[in-house]
């Protein structure tokens, strides 16, 4: 029996007013895939990612998570999710890491990490706390559990955010430019954590500008241009001879 892909996105379209940002994007992620999504600013990468967990609602198209389709209806001329409950349930299965970390500033790191498991998944608190400590240790900030986000460096905050997403035991992790807001010397510690996750077999979809990560850690690279997937393939193909001219021009900017 063919394996059900973790994520299947079909023909997503999205316009902001007259500006068509996504013009029909399709993507599939199998279990264990680490897909890097590259592209220039304005190519629609972040919008696409946010359409997957419905932080943006696409105008048309389908999103299937683990074989379950997010049901949509047309209400008042606009595409809307049919059931908030289903949206919440799907979101709980997708982990998201944001560019600006988005930690809850009035809670400690530990409280940030257990918030989802305790209040959304309704799991017993003691269990969640124990797991949270283990996760924080895993991302390298085990001693910061009782600190507040404002006390942590950017890199530490992002790692805490990763731990928070992992605490939900998601089927798929979405990363929206996780290192773009970090000082250069802090980027490495976050990439290390992401690499470790990839090597453990976590299914990841990463919007990034970090070419090193795209080349060395991901097993597939997708290049987006003007709302469409221009080309997609393994890192060897994409960064090697098989690269499309547009992609070659794009990465030309990154060779210093």
């Amino acid at each position: 029996m063919p394996e059900v892909p973790r994520l299947s996105v079909r023909d997503i379209r999205k316009s902001f007013g007259a500006h068509e940002v996504l013009r029909g994007i399709s993507l599939e992620a199998r279990d264990g895939d680490v897909i890097s999504l590259l592209g220039a600013s304005g190519s629609g990468k972040s919008t696409f990612l946010r359409c997957i967990n419905l932080l943006e609602v696409a105008d048309s198209g389908e999103v299937w998570v683990d074989g379950e389709q997010i049901r949509m209806v047309q209400k008042g001329g606009k595409n809307r999710p049919a059931s908030q409950k289903q949206v919440d349930h799907i979101r709980a299965e997708l982990g998201m890491v944001f560019q600006s970390f988005n930690l809850w500033s009035h809670m400690t790191i530990l409280q940030n990490v257990i918030e989802g498991p305790v209040h959304v998944l309704k799991r017993p608190r003691a269990e969640c706390v124990e797991e949270a400590h283990a996760l924080l240790k895993k991302v390298g900030i085990g001693d910061k559990a009782n600190a507040y986000p404002a006390h942590l460096s950017g890199g530490q905050q992002q790692r805490a955010a990763i731990a928070r997403a992992l605490a939900m035991k998601p089927k798929l992790m979405l990363f929206d430019e996780p290192t773009s807001a970090l000082d250069p010397e802090l980027v490495g510690e976050v990439l290390r954590v992401m690499r470790a996750l990839a090597e453990e077999g976590t299914t990841m979809l990463v919007v990034t500008h970090e070419m090193g990560f795209a080349r060395n850690v991901s097993n597939r690279v997708a290049f987006m241009r003007e709302g469409l997937v221009d080309s997609m393939g393994s890192p060897q193909e994409m960064f090697g001879a098989g690269a499309s001219p547009a992609f070659r021009q794009f990465i030309g900017h990154f060779q210093a």
Partner: peptide
């Protein structure tokens, strides 16, 4: 952003 993070986890 903090509201978004909560929604992304499945809160509503």
């Amino acid at each position: 952003r903090e509201i978004e993070a909560a929604r992304a986890i499945g809160m509503s």
